[in-house]
Design a binder for these strands. Structure first.
Length: 588
RNA sequence: GGCGGCGUAGCUCAGUUGGUUAGAGCAGCGGAAUCAUAAUCCGCGUGUCCGGGGUUCAAGUCCCUGCGCCGCCA
């Protein structure tokens, strides 16, 4: 096995506005946590970071709706999201905030570097200003009648009825979505644009460095094989090459809430009162978050994770995100990093996910359709969700959540296969030998076969986890659980006990050791249940089973244990039906 | 409208660079066992690989096209 490595892991940072649904969870934070937990268990050094993404108009509006100053609203929502993250046992080394002073300084620093590199240009443009609201309005916050189809609630960027793309000035009788005011006027304003187009070649070179040629030429185009997930690379190249190609992007806005536009520590003439646009400062928070981690006293040196001139060149950096975030992570953020001309760590591997659908449709925040993270925790322990979501992660295509599938999977995998295994072996031992690991007997062919089988399966499990093949890893883990039941079924200690108690003792001892073995292997998926099993087995030996035979002797004869409470109770049909109606939301 | 993705057993999904009789889990059917959360284990899978063309000695796997579903469009 490879020597200990250092892994930097970030999850896409969730927007501050509201509580996320299960689709958001499984698209970034949860698989990131799985990977982080696994690598730590394998004794690698891990820095796992996440944060809340707090700037932008939606946060301001949500705060206004809640009747609170936006800073206060964000602070409260950050705590809410942090609490929910703890509820799902997400093991962030730090859960930061994009509104942190560290991110302010760093964002302004990057802007300065990009300006020095000639990668920022100033653009004077005209935008809709709402006199009543006292602010410029983003296109989607202007509504009016569509000039094309007459739909009365067309948005300034697009008509939801006829899907025609619009400019706010196209709308008939435009009004502010915020206040309803029709007192709108076109005002001149100046903004900064990041010259992404100038970096196209550099970005393409970097992205192609994550692929390898197959040698095949098809239709005059050389075929490539991706080392990143196909989803990641195809989205990146599409944005880079298709249509008009990579466009320059505005990185500032006329808002109050955000990071003030500055040229490093200095003022930026003409940009007073403006802030950086949220997409610019949000990914920089990945770096600032490491600074927050140090400033919070949890670490001592953030630069060895982020500066390749200060030790980060041997760090492997993995990002997790939903597919909608891929362009920002493959193009925009790398443009910021590369454009700075400084030796910042670039991402090595981007794991992206498709969407999770809910019962034949989309999860919908606005319609309250689907299960949200707080609701999920209110009805079942987090491990139930973690297991189902990870074992059904939308890796190759969009995935489907149905209550029937959820109930069946969780009951079968967790309650019947794993939970019942623990139950049957501990209770049998208690009734025949007491609550202590029994002594006597020696391995026979069955035990040797089991060890050989498990050795192969653990290797397969590790290979899938190393490759971040989440569903396949879950399937391997489940097969490892099944192997325990197969063994018990054929060894049948309840039968051997009648004729040869020593053999039965050996079989039971092995069975009890399998519980610890499973707890260690399963902890990345179901950390709380694993901790419960370890407590029941009265051990804190979390060492990874590099040697399966040795690992299955960790609990020696005479070692005391408790028969655990039901590890996973089953979901009843009544509960399923109840939840099904409760979370159906308002159908369109 | 443009672009992208998807369409494989009742359900959820695998199917690597095209190559022998298309796979897994669940559900279903049959059997074994009775330690256990009525929990386990074993056996049983012909399904138009959405339809239609094409390339090839060979296509679920490549190309074209039709249909259906979904997403994105700064």
């Amino acid at each position: 096995m490879a020597a200990m490595a250092r892994h930097l892991i970030t999850s896409a940072i969730p927007y501050i506005n509201g509580i996320k649904h299960l689709g958001n969870l499984v698209g970034s934070q949860l698989p990131a946590d799985l990977y982080a937990r696994y690598l730590r268990a394998r004794s690698h050094e891990v820095l796992f970071l996440c944060a809340t993404d707090e700037h932008g108009t939606p946060a301001e509006l949500a705060a206004a709706k809640a009747g609170k100053p936006v800073a206060e609203y964000c602070a409260e929502m950050h705590d809410v999201q942090a609490g929910i993250a703890r509820g799902f046992a997400l093991s962030f080394d730090h859960f930061g905030r994009s509104s942190s002073p560290q991110n302010h300084r760093l964002t302004q620093h990057f802007a300065h570097r990009l300006k020095e590199a000639g990668l920022i240009r100033e653009v004077t443009e005209h935008q809709m200003y709402s006199v009543a609201d006292g602010r410029f309005l983003p296109d989607r916050y202007i509504e009016g009648t569509c000039p094309n189809c007459g739909f009365e609630s067309a948005r300034g960027d697009q008509c939801d009825n006829c899907t025609k793309q619009l400019d706010p000035t196209d709308l008939i009788n435009p009004r502010s979505v915020i206040s309803g005011s029709t007192e709108l006027e076109l005002r001149e304003t100046k903004h900064l644009y990041l010259r992404q187009s100038a970096m196209r070649g550099q970005l393409e070179q970097w992205i192609l460095s994550k692929t390898e040629p197959t040698g095949e030429i098809r239709n005059g185009v050389e075929m490539i094989r991706t080392t990143w997930p196909i989803l990641t690379t195809s989205i990146a190249l599409k944005w880079l090459r298709d249509g008009e190609g990579l466009q320059d992007r505005g990185i500032t806005r006329d808002l109050d809430w955000g990071i003030p536009v500055k040229d490093g520590d200095a003022d930026w003439p003409g940009m007073e009162g403006k802030v950086f646009y949220v997409w610019f400062d949000a990914p920089i928070e990945y770096i600032a978050c490491a600074q927050e981690w140090v400033d919070a006293g949890k670490g001592t040196d953030w630069e060895r994770w982020w500066r390749t001139d200060k030790g980060a060149d041997d760090v492997r950096y993995t990002q997790f995100m939903g597919k909608d975030n891929v362009p920002f992570h493959t193009l925009s953020f790398p443009a910021t990093i590369l454009g700075s001309g400084e030796p910042w760590k670039l991402v090595d591997y981007i794991k992206s996910f498709n969407y999770l659908n809910y019962d034949g449709g989309q999860f919908s925040t606005s319609r309250g359709r689907g299960v949200f993270m707080d609701q999920a925790l209110a009805i079942l322990p987090s491990d139930y969700w973690r297991w189902w979501l990870l074992s059904h992660a939308p890796e190759t295509s969009d995935a489907e959540f149905t209550w029937e599938n959820f109930q069946a999977s969780v009951n079968k995998d967790l309650a019947d296969v794993l939970g019942n295994f623990v139950s049957r072996i501990t209770k049998f031992c208690r009734s025949k030998f007491g609550e202590v690991v029994p002594e006597g007997g020696a391995y026979g062919d069955q035990e040797q076969a089991l060890i050989a089988d498990l050795t192969a399966r653990v290797a397969a499990y590790q290979a899938q986890m190393d490759a971040i093949e989440v569903r396949k890893a879950a399937a391997e883990l489940r097969a490892i659980w099944v192997a325990g039941n197969e063994y018990l079924q054929s060894a049948a200690p309840w039968t051997t006990f009648k004729t040869d108690p020593a053999v039965a003792a050996m079989q039971v001892r092995l069975g009890l050791n399998l519980i610890r073995f499973y707890a260690v292997l399963s902890a990345a998926f179901i950390p709380d249940a694993s901790a419960g099993l370890m407590a029941a087995m009265q051990t804190d030996d979390w060492s990874w089973p590099d040697d399966v035979a040795g690992a299955l002797q960790a609990l020696p004869p005479g070692h005391a244990f408790n028969v655990p409470e039901v590890t996973f109770r089953k979901i009843t049909d009544e509960e399923r039906a109840d939840w099904q109606t409760r979370f159906a939301g308002i159908r369109a």
